[in-house]
């Protein structure tokens, strides 16, 4: 068992370092340590399941060890900028003021095809409209357009607008969320009144109902087949 513990930490460290060396392009949406933990845990958990001759602890101990390691790594990353930079690296600027930074492209081993693909996913085809494009530490690409290309906002046109309030779920798939009713400072009498307005007699006939602090309601009745 001590061997499993030591091997888990050794393998975790080695995979962490290997993926760090491989760089951001391998990671997709997960941060480095999260990816390692996800990959290892899924494999480790399967071991005692694949072979019942292997004690269950041989699967559980690595999982708990990985969990503890991940907590400590992420806590250390929060507390120390140096450690965070060492572990996760830092974002790279691939495009600046409409120009592709070729040095960063080469450093991160990103091809033009991959860059174009990521920009197309964001509905951007003209690179000259991009102020900054960041390759983040989790491998995702984030883009800031030039101010001329940024969509116009009400503030820019000096137009006063109503503030958006956060809608709160009141009924979800036929179930009343009582805690959320309390947040809205409403009660079931109010809810019954709303249901009557929409022509339903029971919350069970409601698929989704939300309300915000201004009283704006979104209502969706259940389809006949599902109610």
């Amino acid at each position: 068992m001590a061997i499993v513990f030591i091997r888990t930490i050794t393998v975790f460290t080695l995979i962490l370092l290997s993926l760090r060396i491989m760089g951001k392009r391998q990671l997709g949406e997960l941060e480095l340590s999260e990816l390692v933990v996800a990959v290892l845990i899924s494999d480790m958990a399967a071991l005692p399941l694949q072979d019942i001759g292997i004690p269950m602890l041989n699967g559980l101990i690595p999982i708990f060890t990985l969990l503890a390691c991940e907590i400590l790594i992420s806590a250390a990353a929060v507390k120390s900028i140096k450690f965070r930079r060492f572990l996760f690296g830092k974002p790279s600027i691939l495009i600046q003021n409409g120009c592709i930074v070729q040095k960063e492209m080469e450093k991160n081993r990103i091809t033009l095809n991959e860059l174009s693909e990521e920009l197309r996913k964001k509905s951007i085809t003209d690179i000259s409209t991009i102020k900054y494009a960041f390759l983040e530490t989790d491998g995702s690409l984030n883009v800031l357009l030039t101010s001329a290309q940024t969509p116009v906002t009400a503030a820019m046109l000096n137009i006063e607008t109503e503030e958006i309030e956060l809608p709160v779920d009141v009924i979800s798939d036929g179930r009343i969320l009582s805690d959320n009713l309390k947040i809205l400072k409403k009660d079931e009498n109010w809810l019954n009144g709303v249901l009557k307005q929409y022509g339903v007699s029971s919350p069970k006939q409601v698929y989704y109902l939300t309300c915000d602090s201004t009283g704006k309601i979104y209502f969706a009745a259940k389809d006949e087949k599902t109610s």
Binding site: F64, T65, A68, A75
Partner: peptide, 11 residues
């Protein structure tokens, strides 16, 4: 963090 360290030491 204390839980994580305790868990590692415990294991």
């Amino acid at each position: 963090e204390i839980f994580a360290i305790a868990l590692l030491i415990g294991i």
